[in-house]
Amino acid sequence: MQRVNMIMAESPGLITICLLGYLLSAECTVFLDHENANKILNRPKRYNSGKLEEFVQGNLERECMEEKCSFEEAREVFENTERTTEFWKQYVDGDQCESNPCLNGGSCKDDINSYECWCPFGFEGKNCELDVTCNIKNGRCEQFCKNSADNKVVCSCTEGYRLAENQKSCEPAVPFPCGRVSVSQTSKLTRAETVFPDVDYVNSTEAETILDNITQSTQSFNDFTRVVGGEDAKPGQFPWQVVLNGKVDAFCGGSIVNEKWIVTAAHCVETGVKITVVAGEHNIEETEHTEQKRNVIRIIPHHNYNAAINKYNHDIALLELDEPLVLNSYVTPICIADKEYTNIFLKFGSGYVSGWGRVFHKGRSALVLQYLRVPLVDRATCLRSTKFTIYNNMFCAGFHEGGRDSCQGDSGGPHVTEVEGTSFLTGIISWGEECAMKGKYGIYTKVSRYVNWIKEKTKLT
């Protein structure tokens, strides 16, 4: 034993070699072989497995989906700052455009905790909710729209109204504003409101030439003092309507412009014939205590009207009353817009006519005020429907199939267009061939041609 100890002390290297040989010859039971080890760690190889990531292109799944990435790591994937920024906006807080917040056709661009709407022409605001041009839906104005110097929408209202708090709607500024039905039992019968379409306001006024200088022999019209197929109006439903009495009662109609003036057809009036105007009328054979009678003290036909040349060209006249009318729910003026808007309103496509005229061709006159909704007829169809001249200051309205029309005794009465609950004068009943005849239409004086003249002559002093 002493000898062994001496050998170990003198030859430590020998001992180490012996131990190493023993270990190498022993069977290893701690580690699995290569094949079995792979069965336990069965993990798919990654895209760049075996390579240094710093030297390969980034992978979106590896960089940002398996674990949260930084902007720089995302930049490695896209290799483009702009594309990385677009991805980053949604990656950080989701897609803010998912709810489609942009209105009126706006395009949404996502941002971090926010979004941006790219608005089409005519709109602005956070969600493109603000109209900035009158060309689109009248700028959301209830009545009139004008573009300011910086191309912003400025709404306005006709006389007797003021802008509401929203700067879009119009509200009454006087007790009985024009064009409004205020009798409670008839307010439910107000005709369907007309909503502004998209309009090209630059070209809204037709490029028409008034044929002022045409000389033409007097034409022989049949029954051209021209509501057939209409309905009984309720008291106060058309408070701007008046009836004219002269040699015979209810020979023509008219509309209240203001307390002192009536507008009617020029062919209705004769110099030297006494005319009485009755406002607030409903049943011409009954006294309903809503009527107001006034005498006409002055007749002003349009300066281009000449019955000797043509009885229905420039067929418009103004009547001055001896005493002002007292405005109330049964006696209310009709609204008159400017030339541009009167023309736009007419193009809405349908209007209402009213009167006490004959209820059928050569038949009896109506006792109760009649009204009828009539569609506008395109000019080409209008011209083809008659052998008589249709001037540019006239328009056609009615039904091709016949059966409904204005008729004798309705002449001078109103053709009105309702705009968001307020009625505007767009025409004056003038003439036609018979009444409600198939293929024939009622012919009306186009008020847009005469609004400046009306307003100039009827100013209240």
Rank of each mutant, 00 (worst) to 15 (best):
Q2C: 13
R3G: 10
M6Y: 10
M8Y: 12
E10D: 15
L14T: 04
I15A: 06
I17V: 07
Y22C: 11
V30S: 14
F31A: 15
N38Y: 10
N38Q: 13
N38T: 15
N42R: 05
Y47P: 12
Y47G: 15
S49L: 10
G50H: 10
E53Q: 05
V56N: 15
Q57Y: 09
E61C: 03
R62D: 05
E66F: 04
F71G: 15
E72V: 15
R75V: 11
N80P: 15
T81C: 04
E82K: 12
E82C: 03
E82F: 04
R83N: 15
T85F: 05
W88P: 15
K89H: 09
Q90S: 15
Y91T: 04
V92R: 11
D93W: 05
D95K: 15
D95T: 11
D95G: 09
S99K: 12
L103H: 11
L103Y: 08
N104D: 00
N104W: 02
S107C: 04
S114E: 11
Y115L: 01
Y115W: 05
C117W: 00
W118V: 01
W118H: 01
P120H: 05
F121E: 04
G122D: 03
G122K: 03
F123Q: 03
E124L: 03
G125P: 00
N127Y: 06
E129Q: 11
D131P: 10
T133N: 13
T133M: 13
T133I: 09
C134F: 03
I136Q: 12
C141V: 01
C141P: 00
K146R: 11
K146P: 02
S148A: 08
S148C: 06
A149L: 09
A149R: 11
K152R: 14
C155Y: 00
C157V: 01
T158Y: 04
E159V: 07
G160H: 04
L163S: 03
N166E: 03
C170G: 02
E171D: 11
V174R: 09
G179E: 01
V181R: 15
T186Y: 12
K188I: 12
R191M: 14
A192F: 08
A192D: 15
E193A: 13
T194D: 12
T194I: 11
V195G: 15
F196E: 12
Y201G: 13
V202E: 10
D212G: 13
D212K: 07
T218N: 14
Q219N: 08
S220H: 06
F221I: 14
N222S: 15
N222W: 07
F224I: 11
T225P: 09
T225Y: 15
R226A: 07
V227K: 10
G229M: 12
G230W: 15
E231V: 11
D232V: 06
P239Q: 01
W240R: 01
W240T: 00
Q241H: 14
V242W: 00
N245E: 06
K247N: 12
V248Y: 12
D249V: 07
W261H: 02
I262G: 01
A266D: 00
A266Q: 02
A266N: 02
V269D: 02
V273I: 09
T276K: 07
T276P: 02
V277D: 01
E281M: 12
N283Y: 08
E286C: 06
E288K: 07
H289W: 11
H289M: 09
H289Y: 05
N295R: 14
I299D: 03
I300C: 04
I300W: 05
H302G: 02
H303E: 09
H303C: 04
N306H: 10
A308F: 10
I309D: 07
H314R: 02
D315K: 00
D322V: 03
E323W: 06
P324C: 03
L325T: 00
T332K: 07
C335Q: 01
I336D: 00
A337I: 01
D338Y: 03
K339C: 10
K339A: 15
F345S: 01
L346N: 03
F348A: 14
G349Y: 12
G349R: 05
S350T: 14
V353S: 06
W356H: 07
G357I: 07
R358I: 06
L369V: 07
Y371D: 03
L372K: 13
L372G: 13
V374K: 03
R379F: 10
K387Q: 12
F388I: 15
T389H: 13
T389G: 14
T389I: 12
N393A: 05
N393W: 05
M394K: 03
A397P: 01
F399S: 12
R404C: 13
G409L: 07
G413F: 04
V416T: 10
V416G: 04
T417S: 09
T426S: 02
G427N: 01
G427Y: 01
I428K: 01
S430L: 13
S430A: 09
G432A: 13
A436F: 06
K438G: 14
N452A: 13
W453D: 01
K455C: 04
K457D: 02
T458L: 03
K459S: 15
L460E: 10
